[in-house]
């Protein structure tokens, strides 16, 4: 479907090789979104010890996941900027 994009307009998205199978897109963003929602509300509604701590923990996770992904990417693949894809 993506390859059906007409070639005269530069698409901002990379056409990916057809050999790669599709992956589930939403589990991670939904999980992080739910954690954020829980974190925002638990401190607001709970207001005490355990709820505050749960809020801090829940809101940290999206940040930790982001940093983990960045570290993984920068460790695994050396950069060949400008190389042909």
């Amino acid at each position: 479907m993506m390859n059906a994009v007409s070639p005269e307009k530069p698409m901002p998205f990379p056409p990916v090789s057809a050999s790669r199978s599709s992956v589930a897109v939403w589990p991670w963003p939904i999980a992080l979104g739910l954690l954020t929602t829980f974190g925002l509300l638990s401190a607001l509604l709970g207001q005490h010890g355990i709820w505050l701590a749960l809020s801090w923990a829940a809101l940290s996770i999206p940040l930790i996941v982001t940093v983990a992904c960045l570290i993984r990417a920068w460790r695994r693949t050396p950069s060949f900027k400008g190389g042909q894809s």
Partner: peptide, 21 residues
């Protein structure tokens, strides 16, 4: 556009534009 890319992958071995994306 994340259909074929696992969550959180940051491709650094290709064009820098893809890294930014």
């Amino acid at each position: 556009f994340m259909k074929r890319l696992p969550f959180g992958s940051v491709r650094r071995d290709r064009a820098s534009r893809l890294t930014w994306l």
